[in-house]
Design a protein around this nucleic acid. Structure first.
Lengths: 207, 207
DNA sequence: CCTCTCCTCGCGATATATCGCGTTGTGATT
DNA sequence: AATCACAACGCGATATATCGCGAGGAGAGG
C-alpha cells in the first residue's frame, strides 16, 4: 500500500537523535515525531515500541520505569553510534519531509473519494427516511406545531454548535501543529470574537 | 462535547447482553459494538475496559487470561441482572441507533469543511516549498518556549470554546423553555453568526 | 419540593506492547 | 556478477489498561 515514511533504518537513527536531545518515554516520542513533521503524520505505537525494544537490546538506550510510563535514555554506545552516522541525519530529515508531503497529497484525494461515498450514503439515508415516513403514518396533523418545529430546530442548532466547536478546535490544532505559535494576544481576540457571537445570538433569540 | 452514544448505564447493560451471547475478550467487544451500529461508531478502549473491570468487581462477569487476550464470561449473577433489566434493551438499542445517525450527520459536515481546510493547508504547503527552495529550511520553526505558551493558550481557547457552547445551549434552552418558539429563520441566522465567527477566528490565526 | 453535593459513567487522550504482512537490505551460494 | 534465502524493518491492526473531564443521576439536607 502506502510506502513507508521512514526508509530502512531511518527511524532507528532519528529515535537516537531525539533521545540524545532529552530522555523521553515512548508516547512522547510519537508526539515529538508528529510535531516535527507537520501533524499530518504520526508514527504508530507498533512502529515505535519494537524499535525501542531493539535499541535497548543492542545497548544503545536504557529503559527505566516511571509509574505508568517507561523513560528511555541514550547510552554512551548510543551517542557513539549517533556520532558515527550523524551525517546521515540531514538526508533522513529531508527524505521524511518529502514523504510526509506526498502523504498529505494522498490524504487530499482520499477526502475527495470520501465525499463521493458520503453522497451515496446520504442518498441511501434519504431513501431510508422516505421509507420510514411512508410506513409510519403522521401522528396528528400535516403541519407540525411550533413546539415540534422548535425542537427540531434546536437539534439542528446544537449540531451546528458542535460543528463550530469541532472546526475551531481543528483549526487551532492545525495552526499549532504546523509550527506556528498561538499567542495570548490571539487568545484574547478569540475570546472577544466568541463574546461577540454570543451577544449576537442572544439578540437573534429575542428578535 | 458530543453527547455520548450510550446514555448512563446503557453500555453496562449492553455489554452483559453481548457476553450472554458468547464469552469474548475486550477488543472483540469493541469490534462487535462497531459492527452492530453501522461501523461509523466504535466505543473506545477507554470506555470498555473500565466498565469490564467494574462488572468483574461486581461479580457479574469473570476474567480469564488467554495468552495476550483476556476472556470475559458472564456469571449467574450477571444473567440474573440481565433477566431483571432485559426489557430495557430494546429501548437502549433504538437510542444508540439514533445517536449514531446523528453522529454520521456530524461527520458529513465535518468532511465538507475538511475539504476547505485541506485546500488551505495545501496552499500553505506550496508556499512553504517555494520558500524553503531559496532559504535554509529551519528544523524546528518554533522554540520550545513558544510551543509551551502556545499549548497553554490552546487550553484556554478550548475552555473558552466550551464556555461559549455551554452558554449558547443554555440560552437556547431557556428561550424554548419559556414558551417562545425557535424558528428555522432564527436557526439560519444562528448558523450565519457561527460561520462569521469561524471565519474571523481563522483570520486571527493567520494574523 | 428543591438544590447541592457526591458518585458514577461515557469517552477521548495517554501509555504500552505484540502480531503479521509486505518490502527492503544483506550475505551466502552459485 | 546474479540470485536467492533470510533477517531486519516500517507499519497498521490487535490488545490492554489508566487518567481526567464533563454530564447524569441519586440521595441528603434544607
Amino acid at each position: 500500500m502506502t510506502p513507508p515514511v521512514f526508509s530502512h533504518g531511518s527511524l532507528r537513527l532519528y529515535l537516537l537523535k531525539l533521545l540524545d536531545e532529552t530522555p523521553r518515554h515512548g508516547y512522547e516520542l510519537i508526539q515529538a515525531l508528529g510535531d516535527r513533521f507537520g501533524g499530518t503524520y504520526s508514527p504508530s505505537a507498533g512502529t515505535i515500541y519494537p524499535r525501542l525494544a531493539k535499541l535497548e537490546e543492542e545497548g544503545l538506550v536504557t529503559k527505566a520505569s516511571d509509574g505508568r510510563k517507561t523513560v528511555y535514555r541514550i547510552t554512551d554506545a548510543g551517542r557513539a553510534e549517533l556520532a558515527a552516522r550523524g551525517d546521515e541525519l540531514g538526508r533522513v530529515e529531508s527524505e521524511v519531509t518529502d514523504s510526509v508531503r506526498r502523504l498529505a497529497h494522498e490524504v487530499r484525494s482520499d477526502v475527495t473519494t470520501a465525499m463521493k461515498s458520503l453522497k451515496a450514503e446520504l442518498a441511501s439515508a434519504a431513501r431510508d427516511a422516505r421509507e420510514s415516513a411512508s410506513r409510519v403514518p403522521p401522528v396528528s396533523s400535516t403541519t407540525p406545531d411550533d413546539r415540534t418545529t422548535s425542537r427540531l430546530a434546536l437539534q439542528d442548532a446544537e449540531l451546528a454548535l458542535n460543528v463550530f466547536r469541532h472546526d475551531t478546535r481543528a483549526a487551532l490544532r492545525t495552526h499549532i501543529g504546523s509550527g506556528r505559535s498561538f499567542t495570548s494576544a490571539q487568545l484574547a481576540e478569540l475570546r472577544i470574537e466568541l463574546e461577540r457571537a454570543a451577544t449576537s445570538i442572544k439578540r437573534i433569540l429575542t428578535h
